[in-house]
Design a binder for these strands. Structure first.
Length: 120
DNA sequence: AATGTGACATACC
DNA sequence: TGGTATGCCACAT
């Protein structure tokens, strides 16, 4: 077997990259947040941070509830808040979990940062 | 099959 | 010091 096709398809060729993103996102502990890059790195596709964001964009396709509000960029900024339907929804959800949002940025981002590659 | 895209990240000017 | 430019990888069309 060629490694190339193996890598391309991965062990779980049936399971899309997106599904893994959803899974990891759902595994984010309550009161914690992570970044797109961290998830991408955990999935073994560092640099595909954009893919993670895009996956969350199609998270509506998933039957599960995806706490995408816990996923922000590396600056802790709520870049995708607009995709929550209401711009304030993401902020409200985070504040509900005890986060402090200032200027669309999570102040406790570094303290509450959860790295799946590190914690998992 | 090829091209475009996207809620990022990093580098450079 | 901040904006611009490019890379990056997997999905969608």
């Amino acid at each position: 077997m060629t490694e190339k096709s193996s890598v391309r398809s991965g062990k779980s060729d049936s399971y899309s990259f997106f599904c893994r993103v959803y899974d990891v996102t759902c595994m984010i502990p309550h009161g914690r947040i992570t970044s797109y890059g961290a998830i991408a790195r955990y999935l073994g596709t560092a640099g595909a941070a954009r893919m993670v964001g895009w996956a969350l964009n199609t998270s509506h396709s998933s039957e599960r509830f995806i706490p995408a509000h816990r996923v922000v960029n590396r600056n802790g900024m709520l870049t995708g808040k607009h995709h929550f339907g209401n711009s304030s929804t993401m902020q409200q959800l985070l504040e509900n979990e005890g986060f402090t949002i200032n200027n669309d940025t999570v102040l406790e981002f570094r303290e509450r940062f959860w790295d799946p590659s590190l914690e998992l």
